[in-house]
Simulated assay, not measured.
Amino acid sequence: MELQGYVYANDGMTISIKAMHTQMSMLNVHTDNIASYGVPGYQKKSPVITSFAEILGPNSLDEATSTEIGRLRRSGNPLDIALNTPGYFQKLNAYGGVDLTRDGRFHVDKDGYLKALDGKRILSAAGLPVRFPMIPDDLEKKVKINPNGEVQLYDTRNGNLISVATIGVANEQGAAAGEVDMKQGYVEDSNVMLQDEYMAIMPLRREFEANRQMFIVQNDNLSRMIQELGRTQ
């Protein structure tokens, strides 16, 4: 009977430890959301518990990304572009691959390439880097970006608008997105709602404290059990 009690207490402690690890991992998701509240284009994450959480512990935790459109804020910068539809801008990384982002704060480099803040080139719908044939000296007056992503440049040589390229938008799988609505001169702030994150944290903290107290009780019981076993030998 004493051995069975030892095994029971040990299993209970393991369950409490795994539960605390899981709750800490869930808390980290919410605190990351809070920390990224002011990051343009950031999409909030939600912790998702899969089956057998009591056995797998934190390994049962997955994350779901919210595709809800964030708050659109007027910036006045002609190369700031906000996506008012689901999807992602595409950036060419150093390895020849493509990174996805909803942060549309772009600029033109000295070679005429449209780039993200991190220096990566923005890709067109054709999969090629967007490049201006000439560097505009007045972005506000000479660069127009249509809702469908077409970039137009005012050519001072003939007074016409020329089409530079159409900015590509992809879905989560990297395929071309369907309907697109871009807002020139706007920045998409994160879609994190702080009040929702704080409300989600409160019950997790209570559950973590409850499991911590349960662990302490079980640990005390196990210590006494071991002492009693030692005295009987």
Rank of each mutant, 00 (worst) to 15 (best):
T67Y: 04
T101K: 04
L117G: 15
L61A: 14
G119A: 08
N93K: 15
A82C: 07
Y95H: 15
F132G: 08
A126M: 09
I81T: 04
D80I: 01
N77P: 00
L83K: 04
L100H: 15
T65K: 06
N84L: 06
S124W: 02
G104S: 09
R73C: 03
E63G: 13
I122R: 04
S124C: 07
P129W: 04
L114P: 05
L123A: 07
S75I: 02
N77I: 10
A125Q: 13
P129D: 06
F132L: 10
M134I: 14
S75K: 00
I122A: 05
V98Y: 12
Y88L: 09
K120F: 12
I81A: 07
L72R: 14
R74S: 15
D62K: 13
N93C: 11
L100G: 15
G57L: 09
A126Y: 09
G87Q: 08
D99F: 12
L92N: 09
G119P: 05
D80Q: 00
I81V: 11
L92G: 10
S124K: 05
L79P: 00
R102G: 09
V108I: 06
R73W: 11
D111N: 13
G127S: 09
F106P: 00
D80E: 01
V130K: 08
S75A: 02
Y88S: 11
E68G: 03
R71H: 13
F89I: 08
T85C: 05
V130L: 04
F132N: 06
K115D: 02
D111C: 09
D62C: 12
A126C: 13
L79S: 01
N77D: 05
S75R: 00
D118T: 09
R121I: 03
A116R: 08
G76L: 03
R102I: 05
E68C: 01
P86V: 02
T67D: 10
A64C: 04
K91E: 15
R73P: 03
E68K: 00
G57I: 06
I69C: 02
E68Q: 03
N93Y: 10
S66K: 01
S66I: 00
T65A: 12
S60R: 08
E68S: 04
I69F: 01
D111W: 10
L92Y: 03
L79E: 00
H107P: 05
L117W: 10
L79F: 02
G76E: 01
N84Y: 12
K120R: 14
L128D: 11
D62Q: 15
T65C: 06
G97H: 15
G119F: 04
N84G: 10
G76T: 02
G112R: 07
G112H: 07
G96N: 10
G112N: 05
E63Q: 11
A94W: 10
P58S: 11
P129V: 05
T85Q: 09
P86D: 02
L61W: 09
A82G: 06
Y113V: 12
P86K: 03
M134G: 15
